[in-house]
Each structure stands twice: as C-alpha cells, then as structure tokens.
Nucleic acid binder design. Structure first.
Length: 168
DNA sequence: GATGTCGACGTGG
DNA sequence: CCACGTCGACATC
C-alpha cells in the first residue's frame, strides 16, 4: 500500500485558532478554519511526514500567519487544485492573483475568466474553494460592495476583510 | 428614482 | 428539477 494518494493533515497554529492543512502528493489541497470543539485537538498521528510536505507546511504556516497579520503572504506551497472542475480551477486561479487589500465582485471574476454571465457559477466555485485565505475567496464581494455570503461563516469573511482593508 | 421580476451559468443533491 | 456566496436588464410606478 503505497501512500501515493495519502493525504496528510497537519495543524497550523495561528492567533485565530488552529487551521487544518491537508496535503496530497502534489501540494496543499485543503485548508480548514479552526473548528474549535471544546475538546482537545487530536494531533495527527503522522509518524513519518515526508520532508517535502514539512517544507510545504512551513510555507503554508508562514503564508497563513502573514495574511492573518495583513502582510504579504510570501512564498506559497504548490497548490493541488486537481479536485476542482476546469471552471472552478479557472475561478480559483483568478482569485489567487487578487492583490492583498483588493476586492473584486463576483461579476468581475466572472468576466476575468471569460464567462461574464456565469456570476452565479462563480459564487458556487468560490463556495467550493478548498483553500480559503490563501485563495482569497473572502476578497470577493457582491456587486455594490455588499458582503454576500460565505460558506465558512461570514464572521470570518468580515474579520479578514476588516484586517486587510482596514476600514471596510 | 425606487422597486419587482426574469433570465443566464455551473455544480450538487 | 431545484437551489445557490449573483448580476444586469426591463417594466412599472
């Protein structure tokens, strides 16, 4: 049984809680917000974490901390977006090039990927985004600067935006 | 100018 | 088939 598709899940400690980073053999494939159950976070029983993943994890941790501190993310680990459809990957790719402190509307993103009418679909793709924060789905607002919704909880969206835009 | 309705795109249940 | 983290156009008042 080779762990060719083994997914490693490592915790990322931040001032905002413990994020959970998932790694495939191709890179970072998931990042979850802290779900702080009152219980103790069970540590990952990963006896042998491949060195490359440790490296990715270091990059993830660093980038995450920087973003949460409203700084430049710095180097990112390779992102494994193979889980998404072509459309979703296109959306996520577009989101990744949004500069810090900048926000777009769903309509803008839709245009950017060449599907100006697929605004709703863009919303769906954002909701399916496996890697929040690093893929700044929270920087996508509804038209008119409205917050819109957020799968991971709108509290987070507001919090993150408040930090990055410092006043919006 | 302020509302109300409708159609369009992609994905998942 | 329907709903959704939507948007923009049109119709009416």
């Amino acid at each position: 049984m080779k762990n060719s598709t083994a997914t490693q899940i490592l915790p990322v400690a931040t001032p905002d809680g413990i994020f959970l980073a998932s790694y495939s053999n191709h890179g970072l494939c998931g990042l979850d917000f802290p779900k702080n159950p009152p219980g103790t976070p069970r540590k990952a029983a990963n006896r042998e974490v491949p060195g490359v993943i440790q490296q990715w994890h270091a990059a993830t941790t660093s980038a995450l901390l920087n973003v949460l501190a409203a700084k430049k993310p710095g180097p990112l680990p390779p992102l494994d977006l193979s889980a998404g459809t072509d459309f979703q990957q296109a959306v996520w790719n577009a989101l990744r090039r949004i500069p810090a402190g900048q926000t777009l509307s769903y309509g803008e993103v839709a245009k950017a990927i060449g599907r100006p009418k697929a605004v709703r679909a863009v919303g769906g793709a954002c909701g399916a985004n496996p890697i929040p924060v690093l893929i700044p789905c929270h920087r996508v607002l509804a038209a008119g600067g409205k917050i819109g919704g957020f799968s991971g909880g709108m509290d987070w969206k507001r919090k993150l935006l408040a930090r990055e835009n410092v006043g919006l």
